[in-house]
């Protein structure tokens, strides 16, 4: 009997934990969770910038390629680098947009879902 009582106590404790967890869920989503998602996205964007070597491309825009230091070499280099830079920037932009989208999605997803549920619920009750 005593053991049964204790077991029930334990189960009650576990249940309280669960309730607390549920209450903490929205709080976490917009505090710690938001911060972590934000820094994750930022890290990805930064990595992509480094991996594509974009700072190198900016820094060396006016430096001749292949050590061709004559005028023609410099001119050709400049345009070649410019074209390359434009392409790379474009690719980088798309990548960045994807991660910004993920971040925005994190913010609006719960609100959107709740709003949609509300709408759907109304729709269903209206239909009836």
């Amino acid at each position: 009997m005593k053991i049964k009582q204790a077991a029930l106590n334990i189960l009650r404790l576990i249940f309280v934990d669960l309730v607390l967890e549920v209450i903490y869920f929205p709080l976490w989503w917009y505090s710690s969770g938001l911060y972590r998602t934000g820094s994750f996205c930022l890290k990805q964007i930064k990595n992509q910038w480094n991996n594509m070597g974009l700072s190198i491309h900016f820094k060396f825009l006016f430096k001749p390629m292949y050590a061709q230091r004559d005028f023609a070499g410099r001119a050709i280099s400049f345009f070649a680098r410019l074209v390359q830079l434009i392409f790379k920037l474009f690719a980088f932009l798309i990548f960045t947009l994807i991660f910004i989208l993920i971040f925005i999605l994190w913010i609006i997803l719960p609100l959107f879902v709740i709003w949609q549920i509300k709408l759907n619920f109304k729709f269903l009750t209206d239909v009836r």
Partner: peptide
């Protein structure tokens, strides 16, 4: 709109909850 979509939307809330629990 409709009942099935409502089910999906509600499941999304649970998905988020699962993600939160794991993370």
């Amino acid at each position: 709109q409709g009942i099935y979509l409502l089910v999906f939307l509600v499941s999304l809330i649970f998905d988020m909850f699962l993600f939160y629990r794991l993370k």
